[in-house]
C-alpha cells in the first residue's frame, strides 16, 4: 500500500520534533550557531535546522546523525515498558499511546537526505578535510541514503517498531 511520506510524517509528528530538536541540541553541544529551526510543518521538508558549518568533522557527523542516536534511544526507552505490557497481556490505553509515541520517534531516527547532503558537502566534497575523514564519512552518507530509500518500503516504520518492540524482547533473551 502506498501512503505519501508527508502523511506518515504528519501521523508521526512527535518523531519529527524530536529529530529537529536533536539536531539543535547537538549544535548547542558543539557550540555551533543556529540560524533557523522549524520543528514541524505539514510540507516537505517537514522540519529543518539551519546552522553554521561545524569546525570539526566529528562535530558535523554528530550533528547529522544526532537524531539517529536520540530518537533511537527515546524510542527504545519509551517502547520498552509498553512492549513488556503487551507481552504480559496487560496493555492498556496508555501502553498503546506509549507504543505510538515510541514508534513515531523511532521512525524519524534515520537522518534525512538533507542531512546526508550536508554531511557530503561539509566533509567529502570539502578540500580542507582529511582523506581519513572522507573514508569514514562516505559509508555513513551511503547508509543514510539507503535509509531514505528504504522509507519507500516503510523501513523507517519497521525500524521504529523493531527498536520499540523487538529490541526489548532481544534484551530479555540476553538477560535470561
Amino acid at each position: 500500500m502506498f501512503i505519501p511520506g508527508i502523511l506518515i510524517s504528519i501521523a508521526t509528528f512527535p518523531g519529527v520534533i524530536v529529530h529537529e530538536l536533536a539536531h539543535q541540541l547537538f549544535c548547542r553541544l558543539f557550540k555551533v550557531p543556529v540560524f533557523e529551526v522549524c520543528y514541524f510543518r505539514p510540507e516537505n521538508p517537514v522540519g529543518y535546522v539551519i546552522h553554521e558549518p561545524a569546525q570539526k568533522v566529528y562535530q558535523t557527523v554528530f550533528i547529522s546523525v544526532g537524531p539517529f542516536i536520540i530518537n533511537s534511544l527515546l524510542c527504545f526507552v519509551i517502547g520498552f515498558s509498553a512492549a513488556l505490557q503487551f507481552k504480559f497481556d496487560s496493555a492498556n490505553v496508555l501502553d498503546y499511546l506509549l507504543m505510538y509515541l515510541a514508534i513515531s520517534i523511532g521512525a524519524h531516527a534515520f537522518p534525512s537526505t538533507g542531512d546526508a547532503n550536508s554531511l557530503w558537502n561539509a566533509v567529502v566534497k570539502s578540500n580542507t578535510t582529511s582523506w581519513l575523514s572522507k573514508i569514514v564519512v562516505t559509508p555513513i552518507v551511503g547508509f543514510i541514503y539507503v535509509g531514505a530509500l528504504g522509507s519507500f518500503f516503510w523501513l523507517d516504520i519497521i525500524y521504529g517498531s523493531a527498536v520499540a518492540m523487538g529490541l526489548p524482547y532481544l534484551i530479555i533473551k540476553f538477560l535470561v
Binding site: V77, F80, S81, L84, F88, L98, L101, L175, V176
Partner: peptide, 23 residues
Amino acid sequence: ILAVVIVSLVRTQKYISAAVHLG
C-alpha cells in the same frame, strides 16, 4: 517526553523482572 521516559523507566523495572523470570 521526559515525563513519559520517567514513567516508562519506573514501570519497566517490574516488567523486566517478570519477563526475565518467564524467560
